[in-house]
């Protein structure tokens, strides 16, 4: 999964679920769009759906400090990479 694919998917989720249209990559979503903790939980569930895997508690906690689109993409990229490594090991 490339960074571009992740970004495309995240942008689609932000638009569909939170009506956040075309956010700047480094804009603080909480300040600019009122993205709250409930939205963060929803986003987590969408990420789980997108990756097709359940996140661990530690991974979920890490996500709760995310503020920008770029950070979301980094986070999903890190998860995808981690999952891929795990699959290869297995």
């Amino acid at each position: 999964m490339t960074r571009q694919e992740i970004e495309k998917e995240i942008r689609a989720v932000l638009l569909r679920e939170f009506e956040v249209e075309n956010p700047e990559p480094d804009v603080n979503l909480r300040e600019a769009y009122g993205f709250d903790s409930i939205d963060a939980i929803e986003l987590l569930l969408e990420i789980e759906r997108f990756l097709g895997t359940e996140l661990t508690q530690a991974e979920k906690k890490k996500a709760m400090d995310i503020r920008t689109l770029n950070q979301i993409i980094d986070y999903v990229e890190m998860l995808a990479h981690h999952r891929k490594n795990e699959a290869e090991k297995a």
């Binding site: 709250d36 903790s37 963060a40 939980i41 508690q57 979920k60 906690k61 890490k62 709760m64 400090d65």
Partner: peptide, 15 residues
């Protein structure tokens, strides 16, 4: 409270 329901603390409460 917002501090309890934001950030990693929220995940603890949900779990």
């Amino acid at each position: 409270s917002p501090t309890e329901m934001y950030g990693p603390a929220m995940i603890n409460h949900l779990e």
